[in-house]
Design a protein around this nucleic acid. Structure first.
Length: 239
DNA sequence: AGCCAGGCTACCG
DNA sequence: CGGTAGCATGGC
C-alpha cells in the first residue's frame, strides 16, 4: 500500500471512467494513494493542538502516522467522532468535538454526569443532536464497562446507536483491529467503477473489499480514507 | 433556496 | 420481514 504505482486516476479534471474496470481493487487503491497521498485518518483534535483551527482545515490529520490513538482519551475521542459523524459532514463534527473538549466532556464519566441540555448544546453543530446525545450516553456506559478490552463487532452492534459502519470504524481506528469499513462513499465508488453491481448493501461491499485487498491495518485505514477522498472528487451525479 | 453530508432507529404495510 | 420517514446542523 505504500509503494507508488502511477496509473491514470479520475479527478474533477479527468472523468471517472478513465480508470479501467479491469484494474484489480488493490491496484486501484495504490493508484489512489499515489494520486492523493496518505490521508492520515482518523483525525484527532488533540493532534491539532490546544487551539485547533477548525472548519475544514486538515489540522487533525496525521498522514503516514498510524500510531494513533496513543492514549485512552484519544481512543474515546475517535469513538465519539464515529458516532457524531453519522450522516454528517466532518466539519460539523469537528466543532462538536471541540465544544466537548473545551467543556471537559470528552470522557465517559463526564458525558454520563452532564445534563441533557449541556450535552445537546455541546454537540449541536453535528446535527441530530438529541439522538446523538443519547447515543453518546449509551456508548459511554458501554465503554466504561469495557475496562480497556477490545469489543467484538457483534457486541458493538448491540449498543444502541451503533450500526455497522460506526462499529467497524471504532474497531479499525480506535481499537486498531483490521476491520473493513464501508460507507456511502465506498459504495458509490464500487458501483461507479463497476467493481460491484446493484443492489449493493453494506455486508456485500464489505466482503468484496475483504476478498480483494490485502489484510492489513494500515491498508484498511488508508483504503477507507481514500475511498472518501475519491468519492468526494467524483461528485454525486451518476457516471 | 435547495441539496448534501464519513447512518441509525423505529415504524409502517 | 423489507422498505423508508424522521432525525438537524452548516456549507456550498
Amino acid at each position: 500500500m505504500s509503494r507508488a504505482i502511477f496509473v491514470p486516476v479520475p479527478t474533477q479534471e479527468s472523468p471517472p471512467l478513465a480508470v479501467s474496470r479491469r484494474m484489480p481493487l488493490d491496484a486501484f487503491a495504490r493508484a489512489l494513494l499515489a494520486a492523493y497521498g496518505p490521508q492520515g485518518w482518523w483525525p484527532l483534535l488533540a493532534h491539532a493542538g490546544s487551539n485547533p483551527t477548525l472548519t475544514g482545515r486538515l489540522t487533525g490529520y496525521h498522514p503516514g502516522d498510524f500510531s494513533f490513538p496513543r492514549t485512552d482519551a484519544e481512543r474515546f475521542e475517535i469513538c465519539c467522532g464515529a458516532i457524531l459523524t453519522q450522516n454528517t459532514a466532518w466539519t460539523n463534527v469537528e466543532r462538536a468535538l471541540d465544544h466537548l473538549a473545551r467543556k471537559e466532556l470528552l470522557s465517559p464519566d463526564a458525558i454520563l454526569s452532564a445534563t441533557d441540555d449541556t450535552l445537546e448544546t455541546a454537540i449541536r453543530s453535528s446535527g441530530y443532536f438529541r439522538a446523538k446525545a443519547k447515543k453518546l450516553r449509551a456508548f459511554s456506559e458501554f465503554y466504561r464497562r469495557l475496562r480497556g478490552q477490545t469489543p467484538t463487532r457483534d457486541v458493538l452492534l448491540d449498543v444502541w446507536g451503533i450500526g455497522p459502519e460506526t462499529a467497524d470504524s471504532i474497531r479499525l481506528y480506535a481499537f486498531k483491529k483490521t476491520e473493513m469499513v464501508i460507507d456511502a462513499y465506498t459504495l458509490r465508488v464500487l458501483l461507479r467503477h463497476g467493481y460491484c453491481r446493484p443492489p449493493l448493501d453494506y455486508d456485500r461491499a464489505k466482503r468484496y473489499c475483504e476478498c480483494n485487498l490485502p489484510h492489513s491495518l494500515e491498508g484498511y485505514q488508508e483504503f477507507h480514507a481514500l475511498m472518501v477522498e475519491h468519492a468526494k472528487r467524483l461528485g454525486k451525479n451518476p457516471i
